[in-house]
């Protein structure tokens, strides 16, 4: 199988002030595959995810060491434009966070801040993105109503549509279904599977069944270290390390 490494990190260290949150993390992310990051709370998986689009830059007093690459670009190189990086590497957050604007404006926002002025084109992309996120049928009659009037699950799919609108190459998802009910969760999972044919997806999840269902590869984090990364099937059936086995069978964590 021909595979291309879309993103990878090598010996990535991350510090909040004096506290080291990540220790020598190296992972390869294969293009158009879903990679799940699992591990107990506070193990650094969300911090790691936020290193990949430099969302952590917003926090004062952080420090990054090591290498993080998107294709052939070092994303922490001073010559890299963070704004461009974040357009290439989109993000969906744990809690749905639509803007207090209309459904349409929510999706159009990313296009407008990236300089698109052509109204017809924006309208076309808004529709396409909403369809991609499987929410078009539910909102097509209320594009001009506030996005805050949607249900939690709809809001989260709207946020996914919003991220898709700027055509990212990689999509980071930070426990995107943890605040949703089972039906909404199922919809999000179906969506992820569908999107993965054209998009590299990296998803943090607490839910191991979810990781097993939707991901091609899984990385297990513990205490800021990457313990094991492998094909999801292998990792869940024949983990190499005892620690991984203990975690996925629920003996700790």
């Amino acid at each position: 199988m021909q595979t291309h490494i879309k993103m990878h990190t090598k010996n990535l260290d991350f510090f909040y002030g004096d506290f080291q949150a990540l220790d020598q993390v190296s992972i390869d992310f294969i293009e158009n595959r879903v990679t799940a990051l699992i591990g107990p709370s506070g193990c650094g998986k969300s911090t790691y995810l936020r290193c990949l689009n430099r969302m952590n830059d917003l926090i004062a007093g952080i420090r990054v060491k090591g290498l993080a690459m998107l294709d052939n670009d070092d994303i922490y190189d001073p010559s890299i434009d963070v704004v461009t990086l974040r357009r290439q590497v989109g993000m969906v957050f744990q809690k749905p966070n639509p803007f207090p604007k209309s459904v349409f404006e929510n999706i159009a926002y990313g296009l407008k801040v990236n300089g698109m002025k052509d109204k017809a084109k924006i309208t076309r992309i808004v529709e396409k993105s909403l369809k991609q996120a499987a929410i078009w049928d539910e909102v097509k009659d209320r594009l001009n109503e506030s996005a805050l009037g949607l249900s939690g699950g709809q809001q989260q799919r709207l946020c996914i549509a919003r991220a898709l609108a700027v055509a990212p190459e990689v999509l980071l998802m930070d426990e995107p279904a943890s605040a949703l009910d089972p039906i909404a969760t199922q919809k999000i999972e179906e969506l992820i599977t569908e999107l993965s044919s054209k998009l590299t997806i990296i998803i943090v999840t607490h839910n191991m069944q979810q990781a097993a269902r939707i991901s091609d590869r899984t990385a297990f984090f513990y205490m800021g270290k990457l313990i094991e990364v492998n094909d999801t099937d292998t990792l869940f059936t024949k983990p190499e390390l005892k620690q991984t086995e203990d975690y996925i069978t629920g003996r700790f964590g």
Partner: peptide
Amino acid sequence: PVALKEASFALGATHFETIVRVIIPA
């Protein structure tokens, strides 16, 4: 809410665009 700021940054908005289009309206 910080979540709104993050949403804007994650879409490739600059700090100025975030202030003008998200923070002040909100």
